Simulated assay, not measured.
Amino acid sequence: MNFVFDLDGTICFQGNPVSSNILNCLHSLEQDVIFASARPIRDMLPVLHKRFHTYTLIGGNGSLIYKNRKSVHAHTFTNEQLGIIFKLIHRHQATFLIDSDWDYAYTGPVDHPIVKNVDRGNLAQKLTVNQLTQVVKILIVIMNDYTALLKELEVLDVTIHKHHNEQIIDISPRGIDKWSALKKLGIAENNYIAFGNDANDITMFKHAAHSVMIGNHKELAYYADEKIDCEEQVIINKIRTLAKGDSIF
């Protein structure tokens, strides 16, 4: 049985690296561990100790796969899709964070909370959109009308993750999510245990043998088999209990 962990809000918090206590717990597991995040790979690496950089990482909500310190898959937008999205961005005077498989373009405020998690390891380059060779994920940071832009994006052939509280729109190519990446890795339905905390974990929860929601999220709660508090020791205890396989299977 595989274990699949989201990062932010699930096992790492407030932009800080995953704690040594949680990492030691994960390192002790006999089961395979996979990390699956909305972050691109370059932003996942700084919150994981180097001994975990050989683990399988799913980034960009499923658009990127990284194994044994190498990129093995990147699912990109088509030029036609990008043209339509950029027209909408311009019409709504939106600012954005756009990721390629490694580098990025950012036009939002320098003091926006999202900036603190972008390329903290200084592993990439900040480029213009035209300099990016491919685009795997688009995050609309600020726009003049969140509801109107969201409505126009939702009719496009793309996957959208909505963050209503932050008024942020997260866009990926159609059919790309954490479950699609797990399938690409050969992970079968009902053959993994998932830990997550947000709407972008829904597809991962739907196909898991067991799913654990950290904290509370109204949309995700419907698909969670159980909910636990966002406390380090509680999370560690739950991982250890499920690893023993004597509580749910």
Rank of each mutant, 00 (worst) to 15 (best):
N122W: 11
K70T: 11
A148C: 06
K126L: 12
C25R: 00
L57P: 09
D170V: 01
M204A: 04
K218S: 15
H163C: 12
Q131K: 13
I11Q: 00
V4S: 03
G186E: 10
N191Q: 15
A188Q: 13
A74Y: 10
A105I: 01
N200V: 05
E219S: 15
D43T: 01
K126W: 05
C230W: 07
G83Y: 05
V110A: 12
T128C: 02
A243F: 12
K137F: 08
I214N: 05
E232D: 14
H207W: 08
S71G: 06
I98W: 01
S180F: 02
S247P: 10
G83L: 13
V47C: 12
N190L: 03
N61F: 01
N200D: 04
I171V: 12
G215K: 07
L149F: 03
S211W: 02
N197A: 08
I142H: 13
E226P: 11
I58W: 02
Q81V: 04
S180G: 05
Q233W: 14
Y104C: 02
S19Q: 02
K137R: 12
N16L: 11
H163L: 15
H90Y: 14
L153M: 13
V141E: 04
I138D: 03
S37F: 00
D101L: 09
I214D: 08
V141T: 05
V33F: 00
V135Y: 01
I160G: 12
V110P: 02
I193F: 00
T76I: 11
I236Q: 14
N130A: 12
P40W: 01
G62Q: 04
I84S: 10
T78M: 07
A181E: 06
Y55H: 14
N216D: 14
R91N: 12
D246C: 15
I228F: 11
N16M: 11
D8E: 04
A209N: 09
